[in-house]
Computed example of a mutant assay.
Amino acid sequence: MATKDLSAYDMEKVPSAENMKFGIVVSEWNYEVTGALARGAVDTLKKHGAKDEHIVVKHVPGSFELTLGGQLFAENTDVDAILLLGCVIQGETRHFDFICQGVAQGATHLNMKFNLPVIFGVLTTDNQQQALDRAGGKHGNKGDEAAITAIKMVALQQGLENGE
């Protein structure tokens, strides 16, 4: 089964991020992968006009801690969107299931609690190669996709709040 190129999108359909502020929470676990996701996200935000000073990147130990990192951004900054970037690779135990479910539910909860786009940019793969393929490899970069999603969701929220 073919996987979509996560970095492929129509640039004309992406609003300007010039006046938007972003918080990015990156898991240190599997940093070869998560660092690439973060670089992809930052580069994509900048490509669409986000200013360096409007992009704040913070690190947490693992993917499970991403949601608390997101909550801390929501409570203590004035960002317009938060990107949660991590990577969980299937192992021999059910740990994978618990982490993935917890982070996904946590991200959804943060969206609703803070009325703020919180983007789930967590790779959930069977092995390291699949993760690398989705962090700048043959399937593009999930960080790019997370950044585009953040920009579009901020634009949607701002437009609706302004009666557009």
Rank of each mutant, 00 (worst) to 15 (best):
L84G: 06
S16A: 13
G23I: 10
G40A: 13
L85Y: 03
I82G: 04
L123R: 02
Q101K: 12
E28S: 12
H95S: 09
K58R: 15
I82F: 07
G136Y: 00
P117N: 10
Q105A: 13
E92N: 06
I151H: 00
V103K: 00
D144K: 01
F98V: 15
F98L: 12
D78N: 15
G49A: 09
N162P: 06
M1D: 14
N141E: 03
N111G: 11
T125Y: 02
Q71A: 15
L6T: 05
P61E: 05
E164D: 12
E161G: 03
G163C: 04
Q157H: 11
G23F: 00
L83I: 14
A107W: 08
E65V: 04
S16H: 09
N127V: 10
L66E: 00
K138Y: 03
I151V: 08
Q158I: 08
D5W: 04
A50L: 05
K113F: 11
M112E: 14
A38W: 01
I82N: 02
A50G: 04
N76R: 14
I148R: 00
M11C: 15
E65C: 11
G23Q: 07
A41N: 01
L132D: 10
V88L: 09
Q158T: 09
A155V: 05
K142Q: 08
T67Q: 08
V88S: 11
L160Q: 07
S7M: 04
G23E: 06
H109R: 11
T77R: 05
K58F: 12
N30I: 05
A2S: 14
V56R: 13
C100M: 13
R134D: 02
L160I: 12
A36V: 13
E161P: 01
I151E: 00
V88Q: 07
Y31G: 06
A107Q: 11
T108W: 07
K142Y: 03
D144N: 10
F98M: 14
L6S: 05
P117W: 06
F98R: 13
Q128C: 08
E65D: 15
H109D: 12
L160Y: 05
R39E: 15
K21P: 01
F120N: 08
L110S: 05
Q129T: 13
G70S: 09
A107E: 11
L160A: 10
N162M: 14
A135L: 05
V154R: 00
G35K: 05
K21Y: 02
T125M: 07
T44K: 04
G69R: 01
I55V: 14
Q129H: 09
Q129F: 04
G70I: 04
G140E: 02
T108Y: 08
K138P: 02
S27H: 03
T67D: 12
S7P: 06
L160C: 10
A17P: 04
L66R: 02
A146L: 01
F22W: 01
F96E: 07
Q105L: 14
E164W: 15
V154N: 00
P61N: 07
H59L: 10
V33L: 03
L68T: 09
T93F: 06
A104G: 09
V14D: 01
G35D: 08
A81M: 07
L123C: 05
N127K: 08
